[in-house]
Design a binder for these strands. Sequence first.
DNA 1: ATATTTATAGACCAACCAGTCTATAATGCC
DNA 2: GGCATTATAGACTGGTTGGTCTATAAATAT
Lengths: 188, 188
Amino acid sequence: MSKQEQIQATALRLFVADGFHGTPTAKIAAQAGVANGTLFYHYKTKEDLVVALYNKIQDEQAANVQAIVNKDDFVSIKFRNIFIYSVNWALNNRDKFYYIQQFKFSPHLSQISPQTQQQHTVGYFAVIDEGIRKKLLKQQPVSLIISMFNGHVYGIYQYLIANDFEPAEKEKIINDGYEMLWDMVKYM
Amino acid sequence: MSKQEQIQATALRLFVADGFHGTPTAKIAAQAGVANGTLFYHYKTKEDLVVALYNKIQDEQAANVQAIVNKDDFVSIKFRNIFIYSVNWALNNRDKFYYIQQFKFSPHLSQISPQTQQQHTVGYFAVIDEGIRKKLLKQQPVSLIISMFNGHVYGIYQYLIANDFEPAEKEKIINDGYEMLWDMVKYM
DNA sequence: ATATTTATAGACCAACCAGTCTATAATGCC
DNA sequence: GGCATTATAGACTGGTTGGTCTATAAATAT
């Protein structure tokens, strides 16, 4: 890992553990094994670091969703895959998932233009839009379905981390969760 | 409003606008029209204030849900009423709703015992538990249904504030949102 | 009336921390 | 080899801020 990556990884861990405020830049630098000046060489301000971290995670996430979207599957399969992937990603990257939420409920969010924010959902959008047009999904606005989709991922995630399940149980819950989501959004 | 209430109201507004860190206690005191010492008389520390505010909102919210639960209605009606109420409450008290989320994704949450956290959902729990037992709701764990319920409220809320609807449209969306939630959780 | 408790005020300070500054080291380029 | 750029280091500081302290005023009890 380059020094910059070390800074990012350490910042992510500390921001999640202690909050933006609770994490001095000096502590990030120290735990990343770099000097104070190095941190400010790579990021002009602390805020820059906070925002860069957010964008990095969102871009990474958007790219993975895009990969699913680009596959040559039926829409319904894509829809399901995105859901399953999203839940698993959240479970396997709790820090990142938490960081995104934390960021979204902070004044830092105002640093991200609405356009950029929308770009992070472009993969979802395409699939859901297609689903609605092909009358596989309810005739509701795409952004409403996306909101519900996200709310649902969030709900299942909360439930799974609040308890401690075996892998098999966990998988069943995710599948059941998907079936419930599908009951909710499918065209009838 | 007593001085203490002025402090609370001002703190809520400023914390939501500028974050916990971005809000000095001196600013809260000044804008509340009280002296610095007064703030620290009522709250031993800044953290105390942050936590007290959270508990106050949650208690208020829990009491209102409880009022719905205590009504002599069918379970399905109660379930619906709680949903409609929750969404409307969030819309009419955006600061409070945002504050709760902000708090939940902050290190301050660790100040709240799991027991206390659970207590805030006791109203929901009773209704959903009854719904499951009477086979009106799917045979899934109560806490999973609660998670999904909350996720759904959150999703609808996000959608409604991201756009600017007429009251009539808004009501329709909430109702449609409820129907979708019901499709998801109803026993079949 | 007097004593005690509660509430308010505002000056003050010690600690902390984001960001600066200067000095090198490494890397790439001609 | 020398020149420029990039990367790293770490000491230093000025402004900020949570919390303390002391002094009163208001309310309550005896």
